[in-house]
Design a protein around this nucleic acid. Structure first.
Lengths: 214, 214
DNA sequence: GTCTATACCTGGATAGAC
DNA sequence: GTCTATCCAGGTATAGAC
């Protein structure tokens, strides 16, 4: 079923834009209605409540994001190539979707007080990953295999996965803080992104070598 | 002026607890009033508005946090020691103040739509750092000095600073996501924390060595 | 299915007595 | 300084006509 030009689809699209821009609390049903060219009552007719509408949007967004990141994980090849490609693609993806970052941030921030575990962003992420990779964990597996083959030194794959995600994501998440503290920094600039990718591959690859002067 | 048992102080204390627990939006003036043992009207009498009260709280919290982290930066000594001590202290601090993480996360998330630049968390951070370190940047300086001395290979101090902060902070920030995706993971457990510190020192120290097999 | 009009609730802010 | 009572805006949800 391709995205039709029917009312439901228009509302969902408008809701996505508005939620991305203003967040769950900041978004107004009125605004969504206007952007979709209908009125408030119809939103409730189709989606019952703001909460339900929001859930639909968030699932769609997370799904898209997970896919965009995992698609760049080469299933084989040398580990150094994997590292380079993954970092490059992930950083680029993050740099080009700042609203999504902000959005996920909002969700993570509020997931603490959410009573309903099933509606939490964590669960939505997990399900999206399962849908995409069928329960397997591509990053963990790639790192484990590389270690087994001796391409890199033995490391805890989970720990390294976390570190890898960390160094990629952090600048974009902490951007408001970093740019305030370091006025010369512009996280989204071409210069910084290029340098960052290079530094990260360097740092992590060197950090994974078996022999280093101690 | 030690925290007196006067009304204003009691309100501020209650507000801190409630804001930490529920966040800016989630917190109710009613709740704060009850916890302080007074009524809503008094909050406005002392602090004028919820916004003003909130600002007072956030400055206090950020100040405390900055101090707790920067105090663990040794001003001299070998770089490897600095790395070990900083990671250990920072990770411990993060692990013991989960509400603060959540709080900062909320603030960063909302700092995007805040019109008033001066009231953003970024500015508050910057000011707190200046108050504490007098405009100097201890992390950057430490890394630069180590590179100049040849203790580590030449790296961009800013890039490495970001990476260092990233690998420390990320697990706590992304905890809801990570623990959903990796069910066996318990970020706040002693086991994980201990392992994490070890892995981080290893990874970063090795990553900073001049000679590595390429 | 789609509209207008409105009910209704939450929560911050204030008036005014003491 | 501290209280009670009340106002008022903003926003979700629904009733009911077409």
């Amino acid at each position: 079923m391709p995205p039709q030009d029917n009312t439901e689809e228009r509302i969902l699209q408008a809701a996505t834009e508005v939620f991305l821009q203003y967040g769950k609390d900041g978004a107004r049903m009125q605004t969504i209605a206007e952007r979709a060219g209908v009125n408030k009552a119809l939103l409730h007719y189709y989606f019952r409540s703001k909460e339900k509408l929001y859930q639909r949007v968030i699932v769609k967004l997370v799904d898209r994001a997970i896919k965009a990141v995992l698609v760049s994980v080469p299933r084989d090849g040398r580990f150094r190539d994997f590292l380079t490609v993954f970092i490059s693609n992930y950083v680029d993806h993050l740099a080009t979707t700042p609203e999504l970052i902000r959005f996920v941030l909002w969700e993570v921030g509020s997931s603490w007080r959410t009573p309903d575990k099933a509606a939490t962003i964590g669960t939505i992420f997990k399900q999206a990953i399962e849908r995409y990779a069928g329960g397997r964990n591509l990053l963990i597996e790639t790192i484990r295999r590389a270690a087994e083959r001796g391409e890199i030194r033995p490391v805890d794959p989970l720990q390294f996965t976390i570190s890898l995600l960390a160094v990629c994501v952090y600048p974009f998440v902490a951007r408001p803080l970093l740019e305030a503290v370091f006025p010369e920094l512009d996280v989204l600039s071409e210069d910084f992104l290029k340098a960052r990718k290079r530094e990260l591959v360097d740092l992590l690859w060197k950090g994974l070598q078996p022999e280093a002067t101690n």
